[in-house]
Amino acid sequence: MSDYLIEARGLSKHFPIRDGLFGRSTGQVRAVDGVDLAIRPGTIFGLVGESGSGKTTVGRTLLGLQPKSAGEIRFRGRDLATLSKPELRALRPRLQLVFQDPYGSLNPRIPVGEAIGEALLEHGLSSRDELRERVLEVMAVCGLAPYHYGRYPHEFSGGQRQRVGIARALALQPDFIVADEPVSALDVSIQAQIINLFAELRERHGTTILFISHDLAVVEHLCDDIAVMYLGKIVETGPRDALFGQPRHPYTRALFSAVPVADPDARRERIVLQGEPPSPAAPPSGCRFHTRCPQASDRCRDEEPTMRPLDGTHRVACHFA
């Protein structure tokens, strides 16, 4: 048994770029390229990155919703690739996903009580008689009232819908939840409610969560361990305190300094990165960040840095860190 609930090693996901009349593959987008992750049970792991960094793809590949191109995923120490179809299906309810868009992720024609409970019935995790009880219980955990049971998604606000989405995942008592930008579509005051809900899930139910977000302030507040992604690769990872206390990768530092702080006097030293992230279909040679890096040298252009441990689990992929 390993110390980690879920581990990914060398995880890659390449999407072919199809072109022309016959859909010939003319290249590939390396959305995720050799990612190593290890998540301790009962913790929230933050995966941070900008759009196009591949963070969503990591989450979906971990859940087996997209086949991986290379690498291995271990759940409780077992390689998922070695599992049979029925074993995988039995595993399905243990691994859940919370979506970003609280509007598109609920079927408009299904009352929320049914949406939360249907998978319980399907997997034989609850009898028909106790179903309502079980659903109301998990709804209460997520801050939904019993009278919400028979209502339809369009009768809810965005924040409430997100609660329904979380309740739906939680009803199956999963070991692992991937939460893909679960608060970024919500208003600020509602975001705080949902963030607190995730913190409660960890503390009361010991749920392990991969929290994917572009919002560093939220990630710092909520997560125990953090990984920063840039163009399909993890550039720095480590425990929260190490990462936020001493960010070592220039990208991590720039990212941290770019977050606007709600304090007009906090004029910190700001690193404004030049230019835009390159396309993942044609990533730069060497270190993928060298085109925007303030410290880039010739070595960065030619040689790709490998992940080096700094202290404990804090690791960074930079020649100069």
Binding site: Q96, L106, N107, E122
Partner: peptide
């Protein structure tokens, strides 16, 4: 997304 959700729920 809600169809992807049905897949996630198995």
């Amino acid at each position: 997304d809600f169809m992807l959700a049905t897949e996630v729920l198995g």
